[in-house]
Nucleic acid binder design. Structure first.
Lengths: 352, 352
DNA sequence: TCGTTGTCTTGAACCGGTTCAAATCTAGGA
DNA sequence: TCCTAGATTTGAACCGGTTCAAGACAACGA
């Protein structure tokens, strides 16, 4: 295989200095026409592919691309409904900036560390769905601007964009309580990695995923206002996947007095619940009300359409990108508003 | 602002050569423990962020990432159903390779050219939805391996992965004809950029999007087998968006004898059609049958579920990536099989 | 004591460009 | 003919690392 053609080869072939050859490609207007044509001819002759961006990069400094990182597999970006909307927001913001997007992820920790270290980007947006803290830790090493999403990190030194989990959860709990529900259950997102099932208050208090904890606290606060005690509302931890959600539901509905309302901490959980209930002929919202959290588009076309707490998902993505590009050194904490979105999956409990 | 810390700064501070400092980060095992610790201390002291990948890149050659390019805005990757499934396939293949993904796109041509020229990647997967030829042309300049998707290019010199458009179209046309339909209409994807509405045979023959043309030919061949003449089957060109699809439908159903079956060249078109028909109370499949093309997941949960020609979308993505990584120099043309997928949106026409 | 064998380190070349001050060239004006 | 301004071109210094042949050093056996 013939060695690859470099700019210096072209310059030599055309009998000009490398500097001039470089100008032919980058500022053709300052090169005399005759010389320019000679260089172009030489380039064509040699089959030169144009200046290699790898070389330019080093000199230029800026890459003009941001990395979006997560500890999930790469396909997460395209398969998870929430991620998709978020990415669309990020993408549109990057489009406006004329910036590119690099997807960074890896199954195992070692790979992930390497991928983050070697990503050619100007900054990172972190999807902290799982192993969020680790992700933050790895990224911090790079000393590039970054913002964490979906993570209520106690650490004030990291920028993040998020929502008021507590208020959102309280709002939807209020809604359900106002409808008259008294027997409820919470289907939670991960509080601690790799655990599922019924959890105790102590476990909730020790959650490493603070936003999950905040949502639980929000639910409870909302219910407490209406005089419903936390003790009567079981919390099931799930992994946001079908298996663990169905296990929780099975356990919940095996008991003599199943709940009349389900507080699901994500729309994904709620949609799985909807399917599970439908498969068993349990009417929603006639027999059981189901409330989600997130506001993904799938909730619009589910049957029935999902009542939920809508996050401004795309907006979060946009803010994240913006916040990277205008990185002021100071970490910023943005908290966006959520919107209680009442659709068809909630109604008063069946008359006793 | 203090200048950024380089490896050479660390080396100097630690009193070792730059080569040794480099080894501390890349092959720590070959450096004497004492020296290693000295270098690490210096790095920490100076706030060194670790070897800058931009530097390494130049030496290493390989980037270990592929670029996925399209002439659509970046958000296309996350919003278009077909693109999403395709990307999921690409992502899973990249995961296995441990490779990253760079999203390349741009609204205007100039930007696009620049973004393709400066993408730091080992190869490209091209989504040729619109302006496909231009995209191929720009990418070819880079002299990196690439494969074109969704483009029946006459040019044998470019690798591509695709399906047998003609056979797929013929199969679904057969299906409809077998059900007894005699009045049909075709809702086509773009044949020529920026045009919509009823098209003539001459226009079809001059289509720049060959796969659209092949599908039309396939439809017609399938119908011809059952004695249905092409002349009686109008072809409406759309831009694969709601507006142009609805315009076509409006025109089609304004006539005295509307079609009893719609051959839609994408599931997206078919889903828009389903909505339009539902909004007007036209029963599907009772009054009108609707057939799609692609096999996106949305077709499963539509009402009614969509009969379609299912492409092995994720598989196409996987093959594309594979074909880039084992680029053999020779352009390859892969043609995958499609599967006629009969669901609820097609049925015999209403009795006359 | 001397040669040998390993283990670390060093120094310099390279990766593929961009940039800019200084050198050179050209044409116009005095 | 000489000088000057403007237009081009050159040469060398970067950008931030990695790599590897060759050198330095220590330990070991003869």
């Amino acid at each position: 295989m013939t060695r690859i053609v470099r700019l210096s080869d072209v310059a030599k072939a055309a009998g000009v200095s490398q500097g001039t050859a470089s100008n032919v490609f980058n500022r053709p207007d300052i090169v005399r026409k005759e010389v320019r044509e000679r260089v172009e001819a030489a380039a064509r002759e040699l089959g030169y592919a144009g200046p290699d961006p790898k070389g330019r990069l080093l000199r230029a400094g800026k890459v003009n691309a941001i990395g979006v990182a997560t500890a999930e597999p790469l396909s997460y970006f395209f398969e998870d409904p929430f991620a998709r909307v978020l990415m669309a927001g990020i993408a549109s913001a990057c489009d406006m900036q004329g910036a590119g997007i690099s997807l960074v992820s890896a199954a195992n920790d070692e790979k992930l560390a390497w991928n983050i270290q070697s990503a050619i980007v100007d900054g990172f947006v972190l999807f902290c769905v799982e192993g969020g803290n680790r992700l933050v830790e790895l990224t911090r090493e790079r000393k590039l601007p970054f913002v964490a999403l979906g993570l209520e990190h106690e650490d004030a030194s990291v920028s993040m964009v998020g929502i008021d989990d507590r208020a959102g959860a309280a709002a939807i709990a209020d809604h359900l309580a106002d409808l008259g529900h008294r027997r409820l259950a919470i289907l939670s997102l991960q509080l601690i990695d790799g655990r599922t099932g019924l959890v105790t208050d102590a476990e909730i208090a020790s959650a490493i995923y603070h936003n999950s904890r905040y949502r639980i606290e929000g639910y409870r606060a909302g219910l407490a206002e209406r005089g419903i005690a936390a003790a009567g509302v079981p919390v099931y931890e799930t992994e946001n996947d079908r298996t663990s959600v169905e296990a929780a539901l099975a356990s919940l509905f095996a008991s003599g007095e199943p709940p009349t309302a389900l507080l699901c901490m994500s729309d994904r959980i709620a949609l799985f619940a909807l399917e599970w209930l439908a498969a068993r002929g349990i009417a929603v919202p006639g027999t059981v009300s189901v409330a989600g959290f997130d506001g993904v588009p799938e909730g619009l076309s589910s049957n029935p359409p999902l009542t939920t707490v809508a996050q401004p998902i795309a907006e979060i993505g946009r803010m994240a990108v913006q916040s990277i590009f205008e990185d002021a050194g100071e970490p910023r904490h943005l908290r966006l508003d959520v919107a209680l979105t009442i659709r068809g999956s909630t109604a008063p409990p069946p008359a006793a």
